[in-house]
């Protein structure tokens, strides 16, 4: 199967054989795909290695065979978003999130837009934490694991802004009665649902909640970026 000029981003590239790269890409219509880019690491590379870096909007063409495709062409599709500093680390986090949570060749059309939007926000210098929380919410929605953010899990009672809840990853918010689990204010859950940025305390609570939810979807594992970037951002 041949796919032409598909909007895409490279999420990760690793060396493959002598002069090739194995690319993990997020594409608009074909979800996450693994592509082999042949001969791009040599001196006389047909495609510039720099064009296959993460965070650049690309139009990719490839031929699919089994699990992996073979890259046939890559073109620029729009101006590059330049991520620098902490925004760059946050971008690496987005990429790990997508690679770890999204299965290959499952199409999620909304996901591509949400990813591009998040990159744009990172490049524009918007709040890192809030950008990441919004993307996590949209990613879970696109994968069909949407969060329950406006009512209680058990009895559908609407959330009270001033009440405290515990978010159970597989179910949703439960009134907090001292039980373990990520504790979060009703107001912060409602703010996330309404796309309104909460205060720093609320953002921190939402971060802990998202970690628990994502860990549950990873089957109890954790994202390496939590350790890597947590430490990188701590030294400031």
């Amino acid at each position: 199967m041949r796919i032409d000029q598909q909007p895409a981003y490279v999420l990760h590239a690793r060396p493959y054989r002598e002069t090739s790269l194995l690319l993990e890409c997020l594409t608009r219509d074909h979800g996450r795909v693994g592509l082999v880019a042949r001969g791009v690491r040599g001196e006389r590379a047909r495609l510039a290695r720099a064009e296959l870096e993460p965070f650049l909007p690309l139009a990719l063409s490839w031929r699919m065979r089994g699990e992996l495709g073979t890259l046939a062409g890559a073109e620029a599709a729009g101006a590059p978003q330049r991520l620098a500093g902490d925004a760059l680390l946050a971008g690496l986090y987005l990429n790990e999130l997508v690679v770890r949570l999204v299965a290959r060749q499952d199409s999620h059309p909304e996901l591509f837009g949400a990813y591009a939007l998040a990159l744009g926000r990172l490049a524009a210098g918007e709040s890192l934490a809030w950008t990441l929380r919004r993307f996590e919410r949209d990613l879970l929605d696109a994968l069909g694991y949407g969060l329950l953010l406006d009512r209680q899990a058990e009895d559908e009672t609407p959330l009270q802004p001033q009440a405290d809840y515990v978010y159970l990853p597989e179910q949703g918010p439960q009134p907090w009665r001292g039980q373990p689990g990520p504790r979060v204010r009703g107001a912060d859950l409602l703010a996330l649902a309404a796309d309104r940025m909460p205060d720093p305390e609320g953002l921190a609570a939402l971060r802990r909640m998202m970690r628990a939810v994502i860990a549950a979807h990873l089957g109890g594992g954790e994202l390496r970026a939590w350790r890597v970037l947590g430490e990188a951002l701590r030294h400031r």
């Binding site: 690496l92 990429n95 390496r224 890597v228 430490e231």
Partner: peptide
């Protein structure tokens, strides 16, 4: 190099 997807962090 720092690369979460390759499991490479500061340590």
């Amino acid at each position: 190099r720092l690369s979460p997807l390759d499991g490479l962090g500061p340590d």
